[in-house]
């Protein structure tokens, strides 16, 4: 199943590993920050409405 990468296996695998790790990190950080922002807004709206 795994293709034979020959003498460049380390280069190819490390390029894929670095790139996929960075992309995953970018998506994870963006989604986590988005969720925090949603809950912070909800809380702020409740506080403002609560104050009347």
């Amino acid at each position: 199943m795994m293709p034979d990468l020959g003498k460049y296996a380390v280069e190819v695998m490390s390029a894929y590993a670095v790139s996929l790790m960075l992309l995953a990190l970018l998506v994870w950080v963006s989604v986590a920050r988005g969720r925090r922002a949603r809950s912070a807004l909800l809380q702020a709206e409740q506080e403002v409405h609560g104050d009347g």
Partner: peptide
């Protein structure tokens, strides 16, 4: 698009807290 939504929500939160 997702991150712009996040920025909009953070801006709105800051405005609400400042108003409060």
């Amino acid at each position: 698009l997702y991150r712009t939504g996040t920025e909009i929500r953070l801006r709105r939160t800051r405005a609400l807290l400042a108003r409060g």
